[in-house]
Amino acid sequence: MPKILYCHCQYAQVVPKDVKETVLRKLCESGVAFDAVADLCEMAARRDPALAQLSASGEVKIAACFPRAVKGLFHQCGADLAADKTEVLNMRTLRAEEVVARLAAEDLRVNIPMKGGTIAE
């Protein structure tokens, strides 16, 4: 199973509170092991080595915000995410049920943008 990282986006109100709460609650109830961070932005600003450990540890699902932003945050931290091993679940736009379902799924739907792939259709 891919590792799971959950971001609580503590220092802004851009992720709907009910989505964050539902996702976190379901993760806690599921019995799976996971990492939760108060705020991915803050960790990136700190250049926290935990992000490098996570990005280097194989497949990962990240419940946070826009994949383009998450990719940039990890890069800023010197911890590039592997495009073929990362699925980012955007809690700003997805429903909680969708995020929870993807976190629970065994497969990985990689989706961080590649070079030249940042233009919306």
Partner: peptide, 13 residues
């Protein structure tokens, strides 16, 4: 930052 560990699954070291 909080890590929840259980008997199954793994987390970042």
């Amino acid at each position: 930052a909080v890590t929840r560990t259980t008997s199954g699954g793994s987390v970042a070291p």
